[in-house]
Write a protein that binds this DNA or RNA. Structure first.
Lengths: 148, 148
DNA sequence: TTATATGCAAACAATTTGCATCCTG
DNA sequence: CAGGATGCAAATTGTTTGCATATAA
């Protein structure tokens, strides 16, 4: 069992929650896949192991993990939310509008930005959503070729 | 009639669309309110003038204006989308998690960030969503006091 | 006049909830 | 064994669509 999962187990118990096999498995999936999954994808990935699994369990588990700040909810597209394990370190997302690929990056400019805002507006910043939209190198090339 | 509205009128006609009183009124509301309205708020603001207005007209109009890039759709919270007039100039949003207030700001750090990403990943960036979440000065003070 | 917009009601999709049953602690 | 967790089905919410009627061009 990874350190991540051990940590989650600990947090769940600290919150008086139970460690069910569904919860553990969901975490594993999120961890293996590296995140950016939506509820239905998670559901389908879990289904083989839990044939009677219901979507509401997925939503309830995600909701719980979100509250415990073990999972982060992303709003990368308008249709549904996507989820990833909260790794503690702030990072941003780059989304390709053509193929949907998501690249994570860390932005050196964001820390001074937070400080700026604290100074200018007295805002205490607790979180951020930085999502940049555009076209990845591959899709640019493909579109270019089709246009030829 | 403001220059904004004149511009919209022109764009609509260029796209072969009609200039209905509902569309004009919706634009006026968005302009007067300065944006950040959701579909239902717009609906309620328009209702007095158009008692038989339906929500679907609001959604269809917003969809149309969004396609023409006259209106921008924001995803500030998970419940619904909010809309504002597209002013051409990129800006970011600061959202208070307590009172819901939205502050717009312009971030000097964002332009170099786009350039960075183009360099690092070959990404062509066409848009961005930068939303910072936290607590405004007033709400911090209030919470502080309650805790006392 | 004629195609585009609107209003209304019904359809949808993502997410949430009530309740009986199940299972972890 | 007791209370939290699950599965199922039904309810909610935000948004979209089909169709008959109204209206801008």
């Amino acid at each position: 069992m990874s350190a991540q999962i051990a940590h989650v187990e600990q947090q769940l118990q600290a919150a008086g929650k139970r460690l069910t096999s569904q919860r553990v498995h969901l975490l594993h999936i999120l961890q293996e896949r590296g995140g950016h999954l939506d509820a239905d994808e998670i559901y389908r990935l879990m289904k083989p192991r839990f044939p009677r699994l219901s979507l509401s369990t997925v939503y309830r588990t995600l909701g719980l993990l979100k509250e415990l700040e073990l999972v982060r909810e992303l709003h990368l597209d308008r249709e549904h939310h996507r989820y990833e394990i909260e790794r503690g370190e702030e990072h941003q997302h780059l989304v390709c509008l053509e193929c949907g690929r998501v690249i994570e990056f860390k932005c050196a400019h964001c820390v001074p930005m937070h400080q700026d805002l604290a100074d200018r507006y007295g805002f205490q910043i607790t979180g951020s959503r930085v999502e940049l939209l555009g076209y990845c190198a591959e899709c640019q090339a493909r579109v270019e070729q089709q246009r030829r």
